[in-house]
């Protein structure tokens, strides 16, 4: 299995398209950092300026490395599934398209092992992508802007997390994001198994995520009641839950707390369940697949 995984990883990282995601993420984050270095205060004032009449808002202090990492994740994690689909959607169908799949399954390895090796290779790619993102979004932002308290603006309230209470939340958030992106990879894998060309699974994954995200975020009561609870995209933003802090009876934040841990655990449960369903379905379909290409 380890050998198979190495071969699959070699195949992934040999393709130039794999590095598009790494390049895009680095470029995007660097552009945000440059913009915030130049106009961080203006950007913050655009969002929070309506509070200027009531409070003295220390924009310069808010514009720190920890907050910038949160902003990057907020802007980027919605789009990263597209980058994951670019690789995971191609992982089986790409070989079918090139005509190497028939050759591959003729080797003395089970089809289950083959699909699982491809899945774990996609998982490795996802983790590498997130590590790369963490390097730029968190480490580089800290180097450039320093650390400080994180201010998280929700639609109805604002949370402030003390500097000493932030770092573990990022580890948890990146861990959660890894699970969410692995789910996307497993969906891409399933579509890839069902298809004989690369474009279909990639575009299919992206379309499913866009449609489901729209339904999740539209706030239409009908959808909220009958569709939203069953869509995996509803739970993919769960990483943010680590940045919603609980308060005591006096309204003051409690260090080390999370406002709604059960919701985060539920989201993890839903994401893991969907992933297992997609991977199992991929294995079952691939085992019965009539490989003609």
């Amino acid at each position: 299995m380890w050998k198979l995984l190495q071969i699959e990883l070699y195949k992934i990282f040999r393709k130039p398209r794999t590095y598009i995601a790494f390049g895009a993420i680095a470029a995007f984050i660097l552009l945000i950092q440059l913009a915030l270095l130049a106009n961080g205060k203006d950007y913050l004032q655009f969002g929070l300026g309506f509070l200027d009449d009531s409070f003295e808002i220390p924009y310069d202090k808010i514009n720190n490395g920890y907050w910038i990492c949160f902003l990057v994740l907020n802007l980027l994690l919605i789009h990263v599934p597209i980058l994951v689909a670019l690789v995971a959607g191609d992982i089986v169908s790409g070989e079918a398209n090139m005509g190497t799949l028939r050759l591959l399954v003729s080797k003395p390895i089970s089809r289950t092992q083959l699909v699982l090796a491809k899945f774990f290779a996609a998982v490795t790619y996802v983790i590498a992508l997130l590590a790369w993102m963490a390097l730029f979004a968190l480490v580089l932002s800290i180097v450039l802007f320093g650390t400080g308290d994180v201010v998280v603006a929700k639609s109805m309230e604002m949370h402030q997390i003390e500097k000493v209470d932030v770092l573990w939340r990022y580890f948890a958030a990146f861990g959660f994001a890894a699970l969410a992106l692995i789910l996307v990879a497993s969906l891409s894998l399933l579509l890839s198994v069902l298809s004989d060309n690369s474009i279909g699974p990639i575009v299919g994954t992206v379309c499913i995520i866009i449609v489901c995200t729209l339904i999740s975020e539209m706030q239409i009561p009908l959808y909220d009641k009958y569709l939203r609870p069953y869509l995996f995209t509803t739970y993919m933003l769960g990483w943010k839950g680590f940045f919603y802090i609980a308060v005591d009876g006096d309204g003051q934040t409690i260090r080390g707390s999370v406002e709604n841990m059960p919701a985060i655990l539920k989201s993890i449960g839903v994401i893991v369940t969907y992933t297992l369903v997609f991977v199992t379905a991929s294995v079952m379909v691939f085992r019965k697949k009539d490989i003609l290409s």
Binding site: G47, F50, L51, D53, S54, N74, I78, A153, K154, S155, M156, E157, M158, E217, Q219, D224, R228, P229, T234, Y235, L237, G238, W239, K240, G241, Y244, N260, P262, A263, K266, S267
Partner: peptide, 17 residues
Amino acid sequence: KEYKLPKGMTFDFDDGS
């Protein structure tokens, strides 16, 4: 003042629970 930001801007996590 009243505090309210558009949900499309904040992308709040809300699983309904």
